[in-house]
Write a protein that binds this DNA or RNA. Structure first.
Lengths: 141, 141
DNA sequence: CAGTATCCTCCCAGATACTG
DNA sequence: CAGTATCTGGGAGGATACTG
């Protein structure tokens, strides 16, 4: 299988970027930030987190909500989120089996910054779209 | 070349996810959010934006700061950011040529939510790392 | 229902070489 | 210096089939 090496790593220790994210902290925090950004930047993670915001959901329930995700990606994304401690997986040993996924406290705490980003996107998408139009019309020789 | 189709699209109109991001808005906002998330989630975009936070930078200056990025990716990322109206490109027709990149107002406004996310990452990375350890030790049969 | 196991394809991104 | 052009592999992710 391909779990166990969900390496979000990306940045080798040698000559890592030393851009400061907010104030004075450098190197090591960047790995942390990048690693988290990789999660958030993931095509599905945010969607899942936001879908779970309202409460626990079952696997196929989740799949229906998101709509276009494949089981494979849903499983993989959920495992990743679970591994990071953002989502808790609960199995009910019934027949047929039932599995609930829900946000952990950590997962819920991520909603704040994510929603901030979401709101920014919502507020500024018009600007971005028009910037794109202009760029495409202008730059395309 | 491969510019001009930097399609961040991803979601076809048919059966898009209708998860609510924050309150009541649905469908169309999701495309917006996803499209922006794709930018932010991009491995380099955020790094570039944060590197440009302090002021204009030249191409190779930027390249040195980020360290591990290839010219190709730097160019591509900058074009993407420029296209989205987050970065402004200024050419000085000198010899040798000089090109400055700087954040637009829109670009600067993105720093807020990004830094919020960065701070969340910084604050919670320890939890995540330990969650990963536990998961890897436990789940790995 | 909730997954796992394969296969397969396309695209991303690094490396490299060249140019105004 | 600030790019562009081209080649290439490696991996992300979809489709499908099977299972406890």
């Amino acid at each position: 299988m391909e779990l166990g090496h969900i390496d979000v790593t990306a940045s080798e220790p040698t000559s890592a970027p030393d851009v400061a994210i907010s104030g004075g902290h450098k190197r090591s925090s960047c790995e942390a930030v990048n690693s988290v950004l990789a999660r958030v930047g993931d095509k599905w993670s945010v969607l899942i987190v936001m879908t779970l915001a309202h409460g626990p959901q079952r696997f196929n329930e989740l799949k229906r909500q998101v709509g276009t995700i494949s089981q494979r990606m849903l499983t993989l994304t959920l495992r990743g989120l679970e591994r990071d401690g953002l989502v808790k997986r609960t199995v009910f040993p019934t027949i047929p089996p039932r599995v609930d996924y829900e946000l952990t406290d950590l997962g819920h705490s991520l909603r704040q910054p994510i929603e901030a980003l979401g709101n920014w996107a919502f507020d500024n998408y018009a600007s971005i779209a028009s910037a794109r139009d202009t760029f495409d019309k202008t730059a395309r020789k």
